[in-house]
Design a protein around this nucleic acid. Structure first.
Lengths: 212, 212
DNA sequence: GTCTATACCAAGATAGAC
DNA sequence: GTCTATCTTGGTATAGAC
């Protein structure tokens, strides 16, 4: 709870800590998602969040801790979305429900991209450790909570990883020009293609275009 | 050809340019594979290759160009290995042959890891572009040269991406301790597990253990 | 062909004002 | 709670000797 009473109309003024924190975390997710852990700077994050660079460091301690928070939030979102899917309509098969849930997550591509950045940094003593744990947590959820077999779980994960790579490599940018791209996207996201065609999916509403 | 005549017993002395260049490129592949493009430094590469930092810059112009060479070499290795597999024994199905070829590539994990680092950097104007092209080149090879359907190709790619992630996140390090890890690896690399168990595969012979 | 020395800049983090 | 100013480190790249 804050002691402030003035109305905050998206102002530059001060706001409750939790709120600003969430704002910066969102910005960090986007920036890290695009540039990766090492490629991103705390200054990029600050700019994207509209605050000063020292402030983001102050809030999260270090750049590494900030990334870890981004990573954990991403893992949380996935686990939560999957659990909701598992608890969903029993008329449709779990795999299908989970696939839909995953596709929905795609709307904010930074979630999946940060996972990938972490996954590929397994050599890092701290990030790598967290990445391993997170990855296996998802696998265990698939096996134990969703009731998938080892084979089904690995097939599901494989599809997810391909989707992540397709998001990461920005294949959608070439959707219009390259027929092979269209064909591949159609194979990866069956019956989602109509959504994709409408420009809906991995180009989230609130994400400002940002290079490097 | 060099004008030198002295025998080079892994000496610190000068050697033909091509040879040193290949040496540095190998080192760069390892270092970039572990730390990623931004996370790696030209100094790490220099150390790993046993030369001075300015020299690696001199040889390749910039860090970015060095990474691009590493990336292209990785793509080359894959395309070459796949084409060899396609031309292989017609008695065994193509998908099987390609899978085996991919598993063999796994012996030098830096090849696959650098691909992943590049794939997830699609937002980068130059690396991203190369990554997109390389990715689609592989897809087209699968479709046009290997004769796979769009569905088969995407399934194959999905399995490959999962394998890459498993390499990146260093799941093999937990092979002994975590039963879930063993189960998953068994599902991903069927009938390769005996090799894995012997410690053979993604722990290549000549790669010095390197953290960060 | 390869090194040493170094210029130069970018980035993370700290101090302290408001 | 948030900023400005700044210290410090580390990293790319250049100059030039051997």
């Amino acid at each position: 709870m804050s002691s402030m009473t003035e109305s905050d109309g998206a102002k530059k003024s001060r706001m409750p800590a939790d709120e600003r924190r969430a704002l910066v975390l969102d910005a960090a997710s986007t920036v890290f998602g695009n540039a990766g852990y090492a490629g991103a700077t705390t200054d990029m994050v600050a700019r994207a969040a509209g605050v000063s660079q020292p402030y983001v460091v102050r809030m999260f301690g270090t750049k590494e801790q900030l990334f870890l928070e981004v990573l954990h939030r991403a893992l949380d979102r996935i686990m939560t979305a999957f659990r909701a899917a598992i608890a969903g309509d029993p008329a449709v098969p779990v795999g299908r429900r989970l696939g839909n849930a995953y596709f929905t997550l795609t709307a904010d591509r930074s979630i999946l991209l940060n996972l990938m950045h972490a996954f590929v940094l397994g050599a890092d003593p701290v990030i790598g450790e967290q990445a391993r744990c997170g990855f296996m947590d998802v696998y265990r959820l698939l096996r134990e909570e969703a009731g998938m077999s080892a084979y089904e779980a690995s097939e599901f994960l494989a599809g997810g990883m391909l989707a992540n790579v397709v998001l990461g490599v920005r294949l959608f940018d070439d959707y219009a020009t390259d027929p092979a791209v269209r064909e591949l996207l159609g194979a990866i996201f069956p019956e989602k293609l109509d959504l994709i065609r409408q420009g809906h999916p991995p180009l989230p509403p609130g994400t400002p275009p940002r290079s490097a």
